[in-house]
Design a binder for these strands. Structure first.
Length: 609
DNA sequence: GCCGTTTTCGGCCCGACTGTTTTCAGTCG
């Protein structure tokens, strides 16, 4: 069983426990464990087979370990089976509706017997929800709006889509009087491949906050305003993208930026670290508890407007006591307060970045400037829209040293894949273009299909004539896990193969990765000295960050490539770099950071003519 | 349910906003 399935089971269990009204800290323990499982680079079942103790994992104790072992062994968790006898498992789905949490879902179920999305919609339409205690007309309207939204896109946007929708919002706010600074935070800043909403931060001069908020709600393309407070507002664009605005004091901008960049997991770890040294971190700064130890004064919580006369000049009267502001003007100050160097947002996922920072072993992340070429792209010869020359000059314009033209092979008929004859014809054009081309090296390659049985779509003598050979799965996505794994590993063993491209075949929000033992695939690639691709197309971003992290651990070579089907799509490299950084990838791991000479000698490890 | 250079028991990150209340619960990030 895959980790993702383990996580799903635990998630259902956590959801139902929450609806049942279980101890919130118990729920948090489950959520922590789920995040951990999703972030693991190794399969739990492999760890169990290797006799490793799951309780060694942070956040997994005796109980959770027991549930996981039972699940791996029997495919079931008896606690979950027990709970679903009392609570319908469909209720977990309802908590995903915006505005509905476990408490409200439990109420809807107990009072109105609602367990399905359809029933919820019907009840709202006939007005039965508004009469329920704790609900009202507005809650009912909100539910009616949220259901179709939930049904359509499940609330996730590609980061690149979000960037497009966001642009007019930023333009609208840019230069508005009173705005001192503006930045996008949240998962967007961390470079996550899909985002649920966008967190926009603004610092504004004293009195102008109200006007800034008002201006924000009049963004072009706004569908509705969901919240409009003094410091926090939320609009939903017609595209469905929710945008949150926070107005924050300039003096503690760094603390706010850090807080709203997250991730949640990272913030929790940072706060725990702060607490250990008597500090408290919030979006308003880093504070040292200034109340005398054991003093009853610290228990005085309701002194909202009345700071005690003895407090020092910089004292901050917070919601739960008095503290002295220690820093927060910049993110660097926040990290420095807990003895850490600044950590790049792409790493802030609570996956060991804090330990790495403490031990001065943060990765030297690969940057766009490190990239010397693009090794995967298409032209009009198959399903691209540009000429070979156009692609080459577009690459040269981007400052690259080299590129590879890699059209499809014949099995991909819908993409007008090339037969051996057409491929040889293309080699002729490549030679012609090369003659007139200066300032960039042009490689002739092919994205060769891996057939159902793991053999390649082109004969060896044709492969030998190419400068570079990419292999990919484009068919038979439904093979079982073993068959798919065997198919791909067999292809990797072929002596002419250089790069395995888009290794899991996923399309974000559209197609799940096909069933494959990626660990085995990565190991096979390492064994055969084949590189794996990070496909930078915003729809694919395949491999994902965790796979990349694993590839790095295994010492694999990674190619970051755009798979561009038009010259302007070569800019997708930017998103690929972000993804690579999220996988802790350093320049030395990346094939296409190498100078052309080194790339050539790497390609020549194959005995080509 | 997890965890331990404050603790094997008693903590567990912190704050804002809405809607439904009339002082606050629930939800969200």
């Amino acid at each position: 069983m895959e980790n993702i399935e383990v996580a799903r089971h635990l998630e259902e269990l956590a959801d139902l426990l929450e609806i049942q009204g279980a101890n919130p800290f118990r729920i948090r323990a489950y959520r922590n464990a789920i995040r951990l499982v999703r972030g693991l680079t190794r399969r739990l079942s492999d760890m169990v087979s290797a006799q490793e103790e799951l309780t060694d994992l942070p956040g997994i104790g005796a109980d959770l370990s027991g549930h996981i072992l039972e699940l791996l062994e029997t495919g079931k968790i008896s606690l979950l089976e027990e709970i679903v006898r009392d609570i319908p498992r469909e209720l977990a789905v309802l908590t995903r509706i915006e505005g509905l949490g476990p408490k409200k879902v439990a109420k809807l179920w107990k009072e109105l017997g609602i367990i399905s999305l359809d029933a919820l919609q019907e009840a709202a339409e006939v007005g039965r929800i508004a009469d329920l205690e704790g609900f009202g007309a507005k809650s009912q309207e909100k539910i009616l709006r949220a259901i179709p939204e939930f049904r359509s896109h499940q609330g996730r946007f590609l980061r690149s889509e979000a960037a497009n929708y966001l642009r007019p919002v930023l333009d609208h706010l840019e230069g508005f009087p009173g705005i001192i600074r503006m930045e996008v935070a949240g998962s967007y800043r961390r470079g996550v491949e899909t985002v649920g909403d966008v967190d926009l931060l603004v610092s504004a001069a004293g009195e102008s906050a109200r006007e800034v908020m008002e201006h924000f709600t009049r963004v072009p393309g706004v569908d509705r305003v969901e919240a409009r407070g003094e410091t926090k507002g939320r609009i939903v664009l017609r595209s469905g993208l929710p945008v949150d605005l926070r107005i924050l004091p300039e003096a503690t901008w760094g603390a706010a930026l850090h807080h709203f960049t997250g991730s949640k997991e990272h913030n929790v770890q940072m706060r725990a670290l702060a607490r250990a040294s008597g500090l408290r971190i919030s979006e308003y700064g880093v504070f040292r508890d200034s109340s005398p130890q054991g003093s009853s004064e610290s228990e005085d919580h309701d002194g909202d407007g009345g700071p005690d006369g003895a407090s020092a000049r910089d004292d901050f009267v917070g919601r739960d006591g008095v503290g002295v502001l220690e820093g927060g003007a910049t993110e660097e100050e926040v990290f420095a307060a807990v003895g850490l160097p600044w950590i790049p947002p792409v790493l802030r996922e609570g996956r060991g970045e804090i330990e790495a920072a403490r031990e001065a072993r943060l990765p030297n992340l690969v940057k766009l400037q490190d990239i010397r070429g693009d090794l995967h792209m298409h032209t009009m010869w198959s399903d691209g829209s540009g000429e070979i020359l156009e692609m080459a000059t577009a690459c040269r314009d981007r400052g690259y040293e080299y590129l590879a033209i890699t059209d499809h092979s014949r099995a991909v008929t819908v993409a007008r894949g090339l037969t051996p004859e057409r491929l040889r014809e293309q080699a002729g054009e490549i030679a012609t273009v090369r003659e007139g081309l200066e300032g960039i090296h042009l490689l002739h390659g092919c994205e060769v299909d891996i057939l159902k049985n793991g053999s390649l779509d082109l004969p060896d003598d044709v492969l030998e004539e190419l400068d570079i050979v990419l292999v990919a799965v484009h068919s038979h996505f439904n093979l079982d896990r073993k068959a798919q794994t065997d198919r791909v590993t067999r292809a990797l063993a072929h002596p002419m193969v250089d790069i395995l491209v888009h290794p899991t075949g996923r399309l974000l929000n559209r197609r799940e990765p096909f069933a494959i033992d990626l660990e085995a695939v990565l190991e096979a690639a390492a064994g055969h000295d084949v590189a794996v691709e990070l496909n930078a197309s915003p729809r694919r971003l395949d491999l994902n960050d965790r796979h990349l992290f694993r590839a790095r651990e295994l010492g694999l070579t990674v190619s970051i490539a755009t798979d561009a089907h038009a010259p302007d799509r070569l800019d997708h490299m930017v998103g690929g770099i972000l993804q690579a950084q999220r996988g802790w990838i350093e320049p030395g791991t990346v094939l296409n950071t190498r100078p052309f000479g080194e790339l050539k000698s790497w390609l020549r490890r194959r005995d080509r003519s």
